[in-house]
């Protein structure tokens, strides 16, 4: 088990990362709190040490993504999430970049993680494959397809690379 100091440091270090993953999967703040608690409790209780900072970060990403998926899959949620909520724009979305964020969030769920991890966290397709336990080729395909979808959505707004 990790010390309270280590836990505090991890919360400070990875809060933004976990928050962003929550944002791309979940629609409300209460669910994010649940995910934060789940992820950091798992972190604190994990007994094996991490090989490196990178290992630790990748672990946090995988646990967060899985926690979000579990939450969305849960019976209670599947019965109580309203249609309105599903099409609702996340309330905490920043105004300045709302168009691009909106575009990313409107992507089907399987694209969102790879877009975030690739474009924001800078992971390569094989790295994303390792983190999300997906075939690198699948990641390449997902990325290409996501890029395509975003381009269509934001036509005229984005200068493609």
């Amino acid at each position: 088990m990790k010390s309270e100091e280590e836990a505090g440091r991890a919360v400070e270090q990875y809060a933004d990362l976990v928050r962003r993953i929550c944002m791309i999967h979940l629609k409300n703040y209460e669910d994010s709190e649940d995910i934060f608690q789940t992820v950091f409790l798992k972190y604190v209780l994990r007994s094996e040490p991490f090989d490196s900072q990178e290992h630790e970060k990748a672990w946090i990403i995988r646990v967060t993504v899985n926690a979000c998926r579990d939450l969305l899959k849960s019976f209670f949620r599947s019965r109580t999430v309203s249609l309105d909520q599903l099409i609702e724009r996340p309330q905490d979305m920043p105004e300045d970049h709302s168009d691009i964020l909106e575009a990313v969030l409107e992507l089907p769920a399987r694209f969102r993680d790879v877009v975030y991890l690739h474009y924001y966290e800078g992971y390569t397709a094989p790295e994303i494959g390792r983190i999300l336990k997906k075939n690198p080729n699948t990641v390449y395909t997902l990325l290409a397809r996501a890029r395509q979808l975003l381009k269509t959505k934001l036509e005229g707004v984005i200068d493609d690379e």
Partner: peptide
């Protein structure tokens, strides 16, 4: 653009505090 957009998303201070408080309650002290 995507990086800038995500960069604006930050964990709220209260979210971090709640998490720490939760761990304190659940695991420590």
């Amino acid at each position: 653009r995507i990086r800038e957009a995500f960069d604006d998303v930050r964990a709220e201070k209260e979210l971090k505090e709640h998490t720490k408080e939760y761990l304190r309650r659940k695991v420590y002290r």
